[in-house]
């Protein structure tokens, strides 16, 4: 009970840095969930592409083998891109947390000394500081999630555009626009499909059935990875800070 009281009171006492922590947590949640939802959308588009190919006969698919391979490589490339960005956001959060913990550990030197002097153990002090960080993250995470939920329609439109742009970029590295046009024209020659040439790779672009609006995904992945990116650097910094404070107290 006293432990919780300490953590809650400390949150109020250090409200300025924790407010910054709240913003960072919210921002990370938005970035991570957007990227994970985008990955999901890209995978759904890729599956849709495979399904659309089934409307062509085997000989047509064989003749368009190079085109199909290029498109598949482009989808995989976009996936890797999203993955890299997601990892970058996790690393950025861990680095910011590391710097933030160093700053806070310095700010809390006197407080840490006080806890050590009354006989609190290092795990007890670290647990309190970590709990404060986790409360801030959970609140920031919750707010960001609510914000994202309010803008799912807008988010879907943005993600569709982003996915299309990235696919175009990846495809242009694989095959030139003119040869792509030529190859698709050949594939579609004398074939009846429920989609147009433009929507072969990106269904939103042309005529034809469109995938459902993407559902916000990555809630648990974002939550767990965010907690890991917070707990590991903070534990490290606070443990060193307490070890140094204890040494100072013993030798001063």
């Amino acid at each position: 009970m006293r432990f919780l009281e300490r953590a809650i009171k400390a949150l109020g006492y250090h409200r300025r840095p924790y407010l910054a922590g709240l913003l960072v947590s919210g921002l990370f949640t938005i970035i991570s969930m957007v990227l994970l939802t985008a990955t999901q959308l890209n995978l759904a588009t890729q599956t849709g592409f495979k399904n659309r190919l089934q409307q062509f006969d085997t000989s047509a698919i064989k003749s368009a083998d190079d085109l199909i391979k290029s498109v598949q490589t482009a989808y995989a490339g976009v996936n890797v891109q999203y993955g890299n960005w997601w990892w970058a956001s996790i690393i950025a959060l861990a680095v910011i947390t590391f710097g933030f913990a160093i700053y806070l550990a310095k700010q809390r030197q006197q407080e840490t000394n006080a806890y050590l002097l009354v006989g609190k153990s290092a795990p007890d002090i670290i647990s309190q500081y970590l709990l404060e960080g986790l409360v801030v993250f959970v609140v920031g995470f919750g707010f960001a999630w609510i914000v994202l939920m309010c803008f799912t329609q807008v988010l879907d439109q943005v993600l569709v555009k982003l996915n299309a742009t990235l696919l175009d970029q990846q495809l242009s590295g694989q095959v030139s626009a003119t040869s792509f046009a030529k190859l698709t024209k050949k594939l579609f020659a004398h074939r009846i499909t429920d989609f147009s040439q433009d929507s072969l790779v990106i269904p939103h672009r042309g005529i034809g059935p469109r995938p459902e609006t993407s559902v916000l995904t990555g809630l648990s992945t974002t939550f767990l990875s965010g907690i890991c990116a917070l707990v590991i650097p903070q534990t490290l910094v606070y443990a060193i800070s307490i070890w140094r404070a204890r040494r100072r107290l013993r030798h001063h």
Binding site: Y13, N113, A114, L116, L117, V118, G119, K120
Partner: peptide
């Protein structure tokens, strides 16, 4: 101690007195 009183500023005086139970 005169130098390091070990008093936590954001806790009440009562909570400081009862900090170790």
């Amino acid at each position: 101690s005169k130098k390091d009183a070990g008093i936590v500023p954001y806790l009440t005086v009562r909570s400081n007195i009862l900090i170790n139970g």
